[in-house]
Nucleic acid binder design. Structure first.
Length: 630
RNA sequence: GGGGGAGUAGCGCAAUUGGCUAGAGCAUCGGCUUGUCACGCCGAAGGUUGCGGGUUCGAGCCCCGUCUCUCCCGCCA
């Protein structure tokens, strides 16, 4: 939630621009609605804006006139010929008002308004654009239904919160550009129409008219281009880059397209990248948020440690819960339910939670149900009470084992330790969720702070659960730690990459890596993942060739702009920081995208449709799109 | 592709176990109101309870199907 003073302070958006005030008077406005102060009293002024609110006192009418810059109260006296017309003005009509800036009497000054010391007494009013009936109120604090908001996005964007978020976005991006330039980076543009990259997310494809049967792809990220710019010797690249991925949406993942602060550095180590990102993020968060955050350098957590302590590679460090592995202890215990799972490769993860021994039985029962809902077989726990250790599994453990658990989990009086036992992958998924759920239910998360961290040393490879094959676990272009020697001598699953994520409050802001710029190491890495040299050349020939012609070691990262803005604006949904977002099903309800095309267009592109045998989807046809005033 | 939640007037919401002629607020329209600032007062209009089917003497409520929005899983190098 934003503080109350911001909700009413429309003047915070921007300083008023300079408007030509010379004779003859500007036809629309001489000043903005956020500008007039006591020092302007007895001047004349012309304002233009939207009718935000009206207060009709019969023989006196107040209009709150709103523009991008603020709100000014306009007074309309009953003897003016436009008095009755003004009374009938619909909210959100656009008008120009000319009049005198007048001091408010002391008792009528509005201290909540930047322009609250004055008001404009109207001498002339011109209606520039009348407003029909609104699909939802513009002055309401509550949001309307999301599909209506998206359909009438331009109305929603007039509303204080969203308007402020988009202004904030513009400011943050401008700030980032300045900061990057001052750090010696240069901004580049890279192609939007490019080729499909076979790894990664689904591509958005654009058919070629000139080359029948061939397609461009929109870039999922300018990954190869920025690396090629390094090969070209530009040294430090950045771009506020649009990225296109045809994957399903989440609350923090915009479908279709999103923006990254994409950056890449030549002759850079992992530490060099971290220093830059820490500088940029810290300066952005210091400038655009009042919340405190941990100062750089941000803690670095190896991937393996993050999975163990938090069950996830994007830990929310605001949560004061760190998990422990107790597999060895339970392997020797009399608790057969766990022991048999361990013998089949399972592990035991303990979740110690402080000072909750007094929670009622229902708390534990509900949590157990929740865990089962996640796919857990159950939820074991031990409670350290004044009268000793209690809990459903206490009878399976010896006093020495209980003591060992207390030691390893650093248990104090009234603490509780939960246990989950399953295959490693399941344990991570379930305990990561439980840790967050516990923190939410017990209100352990401090909403007033940001906690940044790096997660480093990601594994280079992993085993595909279905096929059993070795696959790249993240970016195939990352440099394996230990280089060629590691690839040749180590167990592939033990090789780590110079691959890192930056996390804030459990939100993954970005992935990055030091790149593999050596063709021989690249071929070797791909070979381990089952691609022969020919396959690599076919897919990444351009990049590999470049690396044969003098490539500097380089690395980079690409923090998500939209997610940074979500954190700064304290918004739970990414659509609230994007001017024209698509809905969850990747539709633009305002413009009606995606849309059908004509037969002629298809013919020119050498395309024929082979539609699935489903009833026609009528959601986006024009006849269901309502227009204002209906 | 799968799971959860929601859908009642233009908007945000209410309607005890299935008993209802579906309500009040904001907006709209009409009237009153000279100092409000979410102005106030009086009145009016506004509904196929998303849609279709079923159970029942009776359905906003229960059941089945379907549509829309949303959250999550899968997916996101």
């Amino acid at each position: 939630m934003r503080p109350l003073e911001q909700l009413n302070d429309l003047s915070s958006h921007q300083k008023s621009p300079i408007i030509n005030r010379k004779f003859p008077m500007h036809p629309y406005r001489t000043r903005t609605c956020g500008e007039l102060r006591a020092t302007d009293i007895s001047r004349s002024a012309r304002l233009a804006g939207w009718v935000y609110r009206k207060r009709d006192h019969g023989q006196l009418l107040f209009i709150d006139l709103r523009d991008h810059y603020g709100l000014t109260q306009v007074v309309i006296q009953p003897d003016r010929e436009f008095f009755n017309l003004s009374k009938r003005l619909h909210l959100e009509s656009v008008i120009t008002v000319t009049g005198a800036v007048v001091a408010r009497s002391p008792e009528t000054v509005n201290p909540n308004l930047a322009t609250g010391e004055i008001e404009l007494v109207a001498e002339a009013i011109q209606v520039l654009s009348p407003c029909g009936s609104l699909p939802f109120p513009v002055d309401a604090m509550e949001d309307g239904p999301e599909d209506l908001r998206l359909r009438y996005r331009y109305l929603d964007l007039r509303r204080e919160r969203l308007h402020g978020n988009i202004v904030q976005r513009a400011r943050v991006i401008a700030f980032i550009r300045e900061r990057m330039l001052s750090l010696g980076f240069q901004e580049f543009q890279t192609p939007i129409l490019t080729s499909s990259s076979p790894e990664g997310a689904r591509d958005y494809l654009v058919p070629s008219r000139v080359h029948p049967g061939k397609f461009y792809a929109l870039p999922q990220a300018p990954q190869q281009f920025k690396q090629l710019l390094m090969v070209a010797g530009f040294d430090r690249y950045f771009q506020i880059a649009p990225c296109f991925r045809d994957e399903d949406a989440r609350a923090d993942r915009s479908p279709g397209e999103f923006y990254q602060l994409d950056l890449e550095m030549a002759f850079a180590t992992q530490d060099d990248v971290f220093v830059v990102v820490e500088d940029v993020l810290a300066s952005v968060f210091r400038t655009f948020s009042r919340k405190p955050f941990n100062a750089p350098p941000f803690p670095r957590i190896p991937y393996a440690e993050a999975m163990l302590k938090y069950g996830t590679d994007k830990p929310d460090l605001r949560i004061p819960i760190e998990m422990r592995d107790l597999t060895a202890l339970f392997k020797e215990s009399g608790f057969n339910a766990f022991r048999s799972v361990i013998e089949q490769g399972g592990i035991v993860r303990a979740i110690p939670v402080g000072k909750i021994a007094a929670q009622p039985r229902s708390f534990f029962d509900k949590l157990t149900d929740y865990a089962k809902g996640l796919g857990a077989k159950g939820l074991a726990y031990l409670v350290w009470t004044d009268a000793g250790v209690k809990g459903p599994i206490v009878k399976f453990l010896t006093p020495a084992q209980l003591e060992a658990i207390a030691m390893q989990c650093e248990v104090h009086a009234s603490d509780v330790v939960f246990f989950v036992c399953d295959r490693p992958r399941e344990v991570n998924r379930i305990t990561a969720d439980l840790r967050v759920k516990l923190a939410q239910d017990l209100k352990l998360i401090d909403e007033g702070i940001f906690r940044f961290c790096w997660v480093t040393d990601f594994p280079m490879f992993e085993r595909d659960e279905e096929t059993g094959q070795i696959i790249f676990s993240h970016n195939p272009f990352s440099m394996p730690q230990g280089g060629m020697q590691a690839l040749e001598e180590q167990d592939p699953l033990a090789i780590r990459a110079y691959q890192y994520d930056i996390i804030c409050n459990g939100v993954e802001l970005s992935s990055g890596a030091i790149r593999n710029h050596d063709p021989e190491i690249m071929y070797r890495a791909f070979a381990l993942a089952g691609y022969d040299q020919q396959a690599v050349d076919e897919r990444f020939g351009g990049l590999i060739n470049a690396f044969r012609l003098g490539a500097p070691p380089h690395g980079g990262i690409a923090p998500g702009i939209d997610r940074i803005l979500m954190l700064l604006a304290n918004e739970a949904n990414i659509r609230e920081v994007i001017a024209f977002p698509m809905n969850q099903k990747a539709q633009d309800l305002m413009m009606g995208a995606p849309a059908g095309v004509t037969e002629k267009q298809l013919r020119e592109l050498h395309l024929k449709l082979a539609l699935p045998p489903k009833p026609e989807d009528r959601r986006l046809t024009t006849d269901t799109r309502r227009q204002p005033g209906e």
